[in-house]
């Protein structure tokens, strides 16, 4: 087979370039965070944990990391619940409105982040119920942009679900709720977990929406790194980045384990 359809040599070269474009910036962040000097030079001056230690005592980056983590956690819980319920409807209802709703749920990710951020900010000020510049307002914004990812992943796992299993439980006398809770839910749990991890990562790295909704005392990690990039290149930001990189890599590994990678990539 290999000599009938080998991958052209030029393709291999360009693919390596593409991978470098994707990965070298990440590698640089890791190096800058572990480098002993103020500026990353080539070759690096030496290995040091100084910036990592700085991160743990930093008055900006550590609270920002904690805030981002907590915000992502709260967002994930809300958007997993709302998104999973909506997914069950989207896959099981026979209503004509299904397609319209599906489109509606995906709109928040189509809208440019700056536009959505501005719209929410103005709305929060208009409505004047204390959502402007508050943590609750931030969570609302993040739920909007993470729910589509939960719906996409959970819907994919429900479409493949064999309904006869649930019907069997029903015919053996389980109530609809029992049948769902004891039979269906455990079977679609991998899909739900993958969706919620997805939501967590999207919320954790969300920048453009947060820009409009946060305040100086509500600095998320992306915002803190952003302001350090505008005014001074602090290697502490890179050290904070290393922790974020680990978090995202582990989550991606888990979520690809949970959801069938091939299924996500090949369209039906």
């Amino acid at each position: 087979m290999d000599d009938i359809n080998p991958i052209p040599f030029t393709f291999r070269i360009i693919a390596v370039v593409a991978l470098m474009v994707l990965l070298v910036p990440v590698l640089i962040v890791v190096l800058a965070g572990l480098n002993s000097g103020e500026y990353l030079t080539f070759p690096p001056e030496g290995f040091s944990l100084r910036w990592i230690e700085n991160f743990f005592t930093s008055p900006t980056f550590l609270p920002a990391f904690k805030l981002s983590f907590g915000l992502a956690l709260a967002t994930t819980i809300i958007s997993t619940i709302l998104g999973t319920l909506a997914s069950i409807f989207l896959t099981r209802s026979t209503s004509k409105a299904r397609e319209i709703l599906r489109g509606l749920f995906f709109l928040p990710v189509v809208l440019p982040g700056v536009v959505l951020g501005l719209a929410l900010y103005v709305f929060f000020i208009w409505s004047d119920v204390g959502l402007a510049r508050s943590l609750a307002g931030l969570i609302i914004g993040h739920v909007l942009v993470t729910m589509p990812f939960v719906i996409a992943t959970v819907t994919a796992s429900l479409v493949d679900f064999d309904l006869s299993v649930e019907e069997a439980a029903r015919s053996l006398g389980a109530t609809p709720f029992q049948a769902f809770w004891k039979v269906t839910l455990p079977l679609i749990t991998p899909g739900i977990s993958a969706g919620s991890i997805f939501a967590f990562i999207v919320s954790f790295g969300q920048f453009e929406l947060t820009l409009f909704l946060s305040t100086p005392d509500l600095q998320t990690l992306p915002l803190a790194i952003y302001s350090s990039l505008r005014y001074a290149f602090e290697p502490t930001a890179a050290a904070a980045g290393i922790f974020a990189i680990c978090l995202v890599t582990v989550s991606t590994l888990i979520s690809t384990r949970l959801s069938n990678l091939k299924k996500l990539l090949s369209r039906r």
Binding site: P25, V26, I28, F204, F207, I225, L229, F233, V248
Partner: peptide
């Protein structure tokens, strides 16, 4: 690489 926070990747590019 898609899921990693954009600002972190831009830090790398800027360095």
């Amino acid at each position: 690489s898609m899921q990693l926070d954009m600002v972190i990747r831009l830090y790398g590019l800027m360095v």
